[in-house]
Design a protein around this nucleic acid. Sequence first.
DNA 1: CGAGGACTTGATCAATTTCAAGCGGAGTGG
DNA 2: CCACTCCGCTTGAAATTGATCAAGTCCTCG
Lengths: 229, 229
Amino acid sequence: MNQMCATCPVKESAACAVLSEEERDALAAAGRTRVLKRGEMLFAAGDDEAACATLVSGALKISAFDAEGNEQILSLVHPAGFIGELFSPFAHHDVVALTESQLCTFARKDIERAIDDYPALARALLKRSQEDLLATRNLLELTAHATAEARLAALLHDFASAASDASCHIASHFELPLTRGEIANMLGLTIETVSRKLGELEEMGAIARKGKRGIDIADPALLRDISGR
Amino acid sequence: MNQMCATCPVKESAACAVLSEEERDALAAAGRTRVLKRGEMLFAAGDDEAACATLVSGALKISAFDAEGNEQILSLVHPAGFIGELFSPFAHHDVVALTESQLCTFARKDIERAIDDYPALARALLKRSQEDLLATRNLLELTAHATAEARLAALLHDFASAASDASCHIASHFELPLTRGEIANMLGLTIETVSRKLGELEEMGAIARKGKRGIDIADPALLRDISGR
DNA sequence: CGAGGACTTGATCAATTTCAAGCGGAGTGG
DNA sequence: CCACTCCGCTTGAAATTGATCAAGTCCTCG
């Protein structure tokens, strides 16, 4: 096993985990690692040479911009996530690092060849794609009908789930990976509304704010209840 | 070629089009055709024996229900579309026919085996899944930030595109496949707002209503402009 | 120390929802 | 064949949520 893959924190969970050692090494030889600092862009909407990548550590956002230049965050990418629009000639969205992030990038053609050569990889990417679809539909469900309070409560609950390693319970404390503005973009709200509702959730006893970004989940049941799910 | 596939209107465009004739016949032997009338359900959220299917003709909706029982339409399925959550033990959403629909259904295990046996099928389903993801993100972008007017204009524009066979221009007339209530659900609005905004779009000269469901696109450029894209 | 950025808070405003009423067509049963 | 009712739709008025406009605080960094 090559050195990079041997120490890769997501070697068990990323799409390439389904490959044999030789297959993975062959793929790794075609790719290269890359580090992005907060705010740096992996690729922009419209790029035709957009790379594909597996996120090794950190966090990314995928976002679109409307005619007036307003950002809309469409998805967050967590470690082991795969980024890349395989069958489209150019990228539809921007991909930007939220925190310092380590990636394993591949040229599109290399990934396409790997899909053809290794059926298990196609299957793994299909699974990941369906999970992304489900996550996006959940976000859609949230933004379309719920009140500002419910949207925020649900997002916090999701973050708490993601921050916990055990799937059966949620973390009682975590640091928000997003600024207020990014939360607002994601939920289709304004910064001011996010700030106010965060205050209200705290008054209600559902959460406690610890500094600007820290969140304690004071009452998980109440939070879930407010989120309406 | 078996009789069903020989006359299948989507034999060129559905996922199974990538299979050889023998492969497709083998898959077809495992599946069966089914007709749903408007309002009939293919499967419900929570079903663990949810089938997979290719839509041959008609239209389906995929929808979720929140705690209070409000429907949220997450996606529409057009002919040649594939339905089914392959890697999840149970269905997350309801799938219901919007019009009389003809499907080609398969047991989950048959599709899973076909994916393993025919790499081209995995690739085709991956492509479809990514397209679904893109469509869902477009809807998300729409519902999160845009005004009621822009959402409705964009939806009408999309329907007009879907109703046209040529990809370069949009249909100038079509019948809405959805009731006002369904449009409202899809866009995160109320029935009343949809009704009012439809009236306003007509007054502005962007569209003309022909009966309850018929829509003429009077000014495609204006419509696109209002939709903000 | 000053400047800029992220956040909070308050007051006002506008878009959309909510509540309420009524229309018209389709299907039903007397 | 004619009420009668249900359902989808439209329209109006009032209520409310969240957006917008406007300060002002706190922190970090140069």
